[in-house]
């Protein structure tokens, strides 16, 4: 039975990318509305373990604290999620914090997700405009199509879908659901569609859509409830058509 006046945290720490991980436990006084972030902040103010040992404060990544920036992804009680929305009262104790396992460790709970941003470059996840000068209104877009695009554009590159994906590993090139979904987003846009082929070619090679094992866990862990499996299916269809086009028309 957990002590209602206390919060017990078990944190996997690692000093450097090339050193061994180790565990530390902390006991904190319970406070109303506490979340995992506020616990980590409390540790900063008193960095002492449950055993009374003074240690360095835990290092983690966060920024907006309202689940729109994508920074604070970590494994909490074995489930990948944002730490800011992890309310203590809704979690069984001890609360176990581990860094994401699919990205290189920087320190403690901090990992390097640069690979995700590099993938966005590979698939040209942008709209190529003529220039920033005032040439008037943008394209007319039906509200229904806009609403569909909006769901996809909420992706905050947090990496939850990749952490959960059995296909995505530290040592392969698999791009993963978030990247495929961005391809779909930009291909949907009237101007973005003009570069559709290049984006599709980019996901038809190594690490591309064909490597997806269809495990469908990505969509379960997405904090923004982005229809990732729909995106994967759609990009699968688009690439098949592109393949046929390449065969017969090139």
């Amino acid at each position: 039975m957990p002590d209602p006046k206390n919060i017990r945290l078990k944190i996997k720490r690692q000093d450097r990318p090339d050193t061994k991980p180790y565990w530390q436990e902390f006991n904190l006084p319970h406070k109303p509305l506490a979340n995992v972030i506020s616990c980590l902040m409390d540790i900063q103010m008193n960095p002492v373990t449950r055993q009374g040992q003074a240690v360095t404060p835990v290092v983690w990544e966060c920024n907006c604290l309202e689940e729109v920036c994508g920074s604070c992804t970590m494994n909490i009680n074995g489930k990948v999620r944002q730490a800011c929305t992890a309310l203590v009262d809704a979690l069984p104790q001890p609360i176990v914090l581990e860094p994401m396992s699919k990205f290189p460790i920087v320190r403690d709970l901090q990992v390097d997700r640069n690979r995700m941003f590099e993938n966005l470059k590979k698939v040209k996840a942008w709209i190529h405009i003529d220039g920033t000068y005032d040439i008037g209104e943008g394209p007319v877009i039906p509200e229904k199509q806009r609403a569909k695009a909006y769901l996809l554009s909420e992706c905050m590159t947090c990496g939850c879908c990749l952490e959960a994906c059995p296909q995505f590993t530290k040592d392969n090139d698999f791009m993963g659901a978030s990247t495929f979904s961005q391809v779909r987003l930009f291909n949907m846009h009237p101007t973005g569609a003009m570069e559709q082929e290049e984006r599709l070619e980019a996901v038809m090679g190594e690490g591309g859509i064909a490597d997806c094992g269809n495990a469908q866990v990505c969509v379960e862990v997405c904090p923004k409830k982005i229809p990732l499996t729909e995106s994967i299916a759609e990009i699968g269809r688009e690439t098949t058509l592109q393949l046929l086009k390449n065969l017969f028309l090139k």
Binding site: D134, E137, G138, V140, E143, S153, H189, T191
Partner: peptide, 16 residues
């Protein structure tokens, strides 16, 4: 208008 051209998913009227 520029941000709209850059692909921002601004909410639309029935006419788009």
């Amino acid at each position: 208008h520029l941000m709209d051209r850059l692909g921002v998913a601004f909410n639309r009227t029935p006419e788009g």
